[in-house]
Amino acid sequence: MVDARAAILGRLAKALRHDTAADAPAVVQRLNEKARGPQPQWPESMRERFLAKLAKVSATHAELGSRAEIVQAVGAYLAAQNLPNHLTAAPHSLLNEVAWPNDWRLEQRRARGEDRLGLAVAFCAIAETGSLMLLAGPDSPTTLNFLPDDFLCLLPESRIVPRMEDAWALLRQERGAMPRAANIVTGPSRTADVEQTIQLGAHGPRRLHVLLLRG
């Protein structure tokens, strides 16, 4: 395939009249600058905007005053959905010290096909679109975001940023490099492939519930 590479890049360079393989100054500048395009504006607070957009994409949320309320919030969700007390949670520091009730079955691992409920922690959230951003890693297995029917996501309110560009800035600042997968999740899974009728729960989660942690 070395030949195909040379042939394609050669044709491109010729069509563009580039005579050196070295990056043009404009290219280097562009990559370093990371300039933003027009930024959509809105009047509401970030929190209001995030919650309004979240509701618009058929996701639900609960508000938690502190980490001590995680068990209660998850319990309320399980009861409301009439689910057994089984859950698969991400091995995330915010979840590691939660005192789960003794009669619950809780495993901290990646998700498997038969898991009904997954619990993870978002890296951040995007107010503009009501999206959660999750970064694949040892504390956030990607399968949890997609396999279980019910996806619960813990989000500290301080992690809501205005726009996608702010999420990238945060990622660069805190992580330095891209994870294997950066998932921007906006509502539960859906399809309109049968007669343009929106149906939730195509392949991914049927329900998305955000646990918004104050402070």
Binding site: A4, T129, G137, P138, R180, A181, I184, V185, T186
Partner: peptide, 30 residues
């Protein structure tokens, strides 16, 4: 405004990842 899932994939699973593919290939088509 945005689709339910927008995903950025970068390489195969890392040493300490709990899931993800072992190989990541991109076929660039002209």
């Amino acid at each position: 405004e945005i689709t339910s899932y927008t995903t950025f994939f970068t390489g195969p699973r890392r040493a300490d990842d709990l899931d993800g593919p072992e190989e990541f290939h991109v076929v660039l088509v002209d």
